[in-house]
C-alpha cells in the first residue's frame, strides 16, 4: 500500500486587507504555511512597536536598543523603518491612558500625523484598551488623517459604534478586540459588518498570551478561528489576525529577572529575546497575519523562521 497524503480542501479563504499605501495582509486559502495544499499570498507582517512616550521600565535588553529615540516617536519610527528595516510600525498610544499621562485626542492625533508623515511603511495605531478614551482618540485620528490607510484599534463591543462609524467615514481598517473567546470574536465581527464596516476592513485581535502566560489559549482560539474560516467557510471569521505580543512577552517575569537573581535561568537578554521570538513563532503556526514585535534580534529570528516555513519541497508529494 503506497502512501497518499491526505490534503485538505478549504471552502473559504481569509480576506485580504490593505494596510498603508501598498501593504497587504491575509488572503490565505489554506492553514498557516500549508503551501503544499493552498496559497498564502502575503507572508505575516511584522509591525515594530513605537511608543508615544518613554518606557523607562522596560528591561535593559530592549531599553538599550531604543535609548536615543524613546522620547521622540518620530525618530523612533524612522529608526524602525530605516535602520531596522521594519515591514510596518505599530504606534502604541500609551500616553492617552486616563490613569497615566492622559494626553488629549488632539495631541495623540498630532503624534500620529507626524509619524505617518515620515514613513513609507504601513502604520497600525493602537490605544490602551480604555474603551471610552480609545473611542475618543481613534475617532479624532480618523478625522485628522483622512488620507492615510491606518488600521485603528482596539475596537471592542462597547465602543465599536463610535469607532466603527468614524472608520467607515474615513475608510480606515479597524482592529476588533475580544477577550480570548471564539464566539465573542465572531459576534464582534458581525456587529461591525452590520454597522456597515466593509468586511475587508476588519482585522481581529483575539488577545495574545505570552509563552507561559496563556499562549496556549490564544493558540487554540486562532486554530479554531482558522478551522471555521477555512474548512467551514464561515465568512464572519475570515478576517486576518493581529497579535499584539511584545507588551505581553516583555512583561513576563522570565524576560526580566536577572541571572544573578535566578542563576538557573541563564542569560536574561537571550531569554527575553527568545521569549518574544518563540511566542511569535508559535503564533505563526496558529495563523497570525500581523505580529507586533519589539526586539530587532527577535524580529530577525522570526523573519528567518518565516522564510524557512515558506521553503518547502512540494515535489515530494504526488499531488493528485
Amino acid at each position: 500500500m503506497s502512501f497518499q497524503p491526505h490534503l485538505e480542501k478549504c471552502k473559504g479563504s481569509i480576506r485580504e486587507v490593505a494596510v498603508g499605501a501598498e501593504g497587504r495582509i491575509g488572503g490565505e486559502s489554506t492553514f498557516p504555511f500549508h503551501l503544499w495544499e493552498g496559497e498564502m499570498p502575503n507572508a505575516p507582517m511584522i509591525a515594530m512597536e513605537v511608543y508615544d512616550e518613554p518606557q523607562p521600565d522596560w528591561p535593559e535588553a530592549v531599553r538599550k536598543v531604543y535609548e536615543g529615540v524613546m522620547d521622540d516617536p518620530v525618530a523612533w519610527a524612522k529608526k524602525c523603518q530605516d535602520e531596522l528595516k521594519a515591514d510596518a510600525v505599530c504606534l502604541q498610544l500609551r500616553s492617552i491612558d486616563p490613569n497615566g499621562t492622559d494626553a488629549s485626542a488632539d495631541e495623540a492625533a498630532e503624534t500620529v500625523k507626524k509619524v505617518t508623515a515620515v514613513l513609507d511603511i504601513p502604520v497600525f495605531v493602537y490605544g490602551t484598551g480604555s474603551a471610552d478614551k480609545d473611542a475618543d482618540v481613534l475617532k479624532k485620528i480618523a478625522e485628522a488623517l483622512p488620507d492615510e490607510n491606518i488600521p485603528l484599534g482596539p475596537v471592542d463591543d462597547s465602543n465599536h459604534r463610535l469607532v466603527g462609524a468614524a472608520a467607515m467615514g474615513y475608510k480606515k481598517p479597524v482592529i476588533a478586540f475580544t477577550s480570548m473567546d471564539v464566539n465573542l470574536a465572531k459576534q464582534l465581527n458581525v456587529l461591525l459588518v452590520q454597522l456597515g464596516v466593509p468586511e475587508d476592513k476588519v482585522i481581529v485581535d483575539p488577545t495574545t498570551g505570552a509563552l507561559g502566560y496563556g499562549l496556549e489559549y490564544c493558540y487554540s482560539i486562532m486554530e479554531r478561528d482558522r478551522l471555521a474560516a477555512l474548512l467551514q467557510g464561515d465568512d464572519k471569521m475570515q478576517m486576518p489576525i493581529f497579535n499584539n505580543l511584545a507588551p505581553e512577552t516583555w512583561k513576563a517575569k522570565e524576560s526580566r529577572v536577572s541571572e544573578e537573581e535566578e542563576p538557573t535561568y541563564g542569560d536574561v537578554e537571550t531569554r527575553g529575546i527568545l521569549w518574544e521570538a518563540i511566542t511569535a513563532t508559535t503564533l505563526l503556526l496558529s495563523g497570525t497575519d500581523v505580529l507586533v514585535m519589539r526586539h530587532p534580534r527577535a524580529v530577525e529570528l522570526v523573519r528567518t523562521a518565516i522564510e524557512g516555513l515558506q521553503a518547502q519541497s512540494k515535489e515530494q508529494l504526488n499531488n493528485e
Partner: peptide, 17 residues
C-alpha cells in the same frame, strides 16, 4: 543553555496542557 531550554520546556507544557 538554560536561556534556550527554559522557553522550549514552557512551550511543551503550554501546548500539551
Amino acid at each position: 543553555d538554560p536561556a534556550r531550554v527554559m522557553p522550549l520546556l514552557y512551550l511543551s507544557q503550554n501546548i500539551y496542557t
